[in-house]
């Protein structure tokens, strides 16, 4: 399936980040730690946007702000034209540590969103079935997260976010704890899932291969305070090949543009 930036409706952004900054009180309480500065960008419908950058600084904070889990100290975030003021089920989140509820079975995890929102029983069941099928976990309904492998847990995490049928999906380094090979598999899986069930995705990673494999657009972030250094439109055909010369060329180009923080 082919898809390039031409398909994205540039006209109406589903998410707008307007001059967002975030500072925290420093540990000694005397000063401020500026983590984000002057973030300006839009995200368009059904776009796969990757926020890419090194280090631990800022990326997760930015994602939390976009999702409404944290508030900026400067600027605003708009979702579908409305100011984001808190978490909402229209925005789904997939975590780095998966953050599944360990005392719930796979199906209860996936059904959590629909259930707390009091959707009809039948609808909940249908969604659990549909999204477990989408991520390829049919048959594991009764398993507990601790019985699953890392890759499978991430699939549950993705299904759980999808089950609320959100407009925008936020993914915070979801494959960061997986080994290199499982990671390749999950990247291919996510691409398949995303092409099957189109959503706007904002994906944070520090892995350049992952960014290039998945993204319509990559925003390169720099460190401390985090701000936007460069944007890249990625128009290579899908599915992409990790060792294709163009892939490797872009990889080199973007890596060279990163800051090395030791």
């Amino acid at each position: 399936m082919e898809r390039s930036e031409g398909n994205i409706k540039k006209k109406n952004p589903v998410l707008e980040c307007r001059n967002v900054g975030r500072s925290f009180d420093s540990y000694d309480g005397k000063g401020k730690n500026e983590v984000l500065r002057g973030m300006n960008f839009e995200v368009y419908e059904n776009e796969f946007l990757v926020l890419f950058g090194a280090g631990q600084c800022g990326k997760t904070t930015l994602l939390n702000i976009l999702a409404g889990l944290d508030m900026p100290t400067e600027g605003e975030v708009y979702a579908n034209g409305e100011k984001v003021s808190g978490p909402a089920p229209e925005r789904g989140f997939v975590y780095q540590k998966t953050s599944l509820f360990p005392w719930m079975t796979v199906e209860d995890n996936v059904g959590f969103g629909p259930k707390v929102r009091h959707l009809p029983e039948k609808e909940c069941k249908e969604r659990i079935r549909k999204y477990l099928d989408l991520v390829g976990l049919t048959g594991f309904e009764k398993s507990y997260p601790s019985q699953l492998s890392g890759g499978m847990r991430q699939r549950v995490g993705i299904a759980r976010a999808y089950a609320n049928e959100p407009d925008i999906m936020f993914m915070d380094e979801p494959f960061g704890h997986l080994d290199a090979q499982t990671r390749y598999m999950m990247e291919e899986e996510l691409q398949r899932i995303w092409q099957q069930e189109k959503r706007t995705v904002i994906f944070v990673t520090n892995n350049i291969e992952e960014a290039l494999f998945l993204a319509d657009r990559i925003i390169l972030l720099t460190n401390c305070p985090t701000h936007i250094k460069q944007e890249y439109s990625i128009t290579m055909q899908r599915p992409r090949d990790y060792v294709d010369p163009e892939f490797l060329r872009l990889r080199q180009l973007i890596t060279d543009n990163m800051d090395l923080t030791l």
């Binding site: 889990l69 909402a88 089920p89 989140f93 509820f101 976010a161």
Partner: peptide
């Protein structure tokens, strides 16, 4: 784990549900 509470809120849980669930 605050992330678990965050995950529940993101999925639409209200405070009572966060507490009990």
């Amino acid at each position: 784990d605050p992330e678990l509470m965050g995950a529940a809120r993101m999925l639409g849980a209200n405070e009572r549900q966060v507490f009990f669930k």
